[in-house]
Amino acid sequence: MSADHTSSVISARVRHVEALLEGRGLLDEGEIDGRIDEFLAGGSPANGARITARAWVDPGFRERLLADANTAIREVGLSMAGGLQEQRLKVVANTAEEHNVVVCTLCSCYPIALLGPSPGWYKSEAYRSRVVRDPRGVLREFGLELPERTRISVWDASAESRYMVVPRRPEGTEDLSEEQLAALVTRKGLIGTAAV
């Protein structure tokens, strides 16, 4: 299990290799930071919120999203192809019967393009080790009390896919526009640790 890398041997080695590559003219100074900035640019929970709002108002889109998320999110102008290669996206939707929650128990895999950088708690060992064993208890600590009859599905991002949860549409939102609906959606809702 990996934790904090900032002062580790591997970090020092990476910095050393970076300096060597720059010294030999194979890498421009700051090029890696630039590539990382590029990768992060536009990554924000607002993207996940837009996808969610569209899924709430358009049942056809919701169906396409759950079947093949990579293709469906192009309909709202988003993509998982911002990195070196397109990452597979798996979207799961909450219902009255089933609540989904996402974790990466091995490290901190996360759909940065759709949700921005991950919150600190998502990377904590406490969350990663506990939510697979006792999701109901962990969600309660987040202030989310689920009815006993609601089944909980935990998704462990242990390989190459990235995950996003479509929360349930709140009651009494029939008159809201798609944009207003998107404003209701939180980052925690898209991970599954909040209702919306």
Binding site: K90, I152, V154, D156, A159, S161
Partner: peptide, 25 residues
């Protein structure tokens, strides 16, 4: 091929009524 594999929590931890879906080669 990589698979989503679903486990009953009780089979993994001896308790719990949830499922855990892990992505495995």
């Amino acid at each position: 091929q990589v698979w989503h594999v679903r486990f009953a929590a009780a089979d993994l931890f001896g308790s719990g009524d949830h499922t855990v879906t892990v992505e495995l080669w």
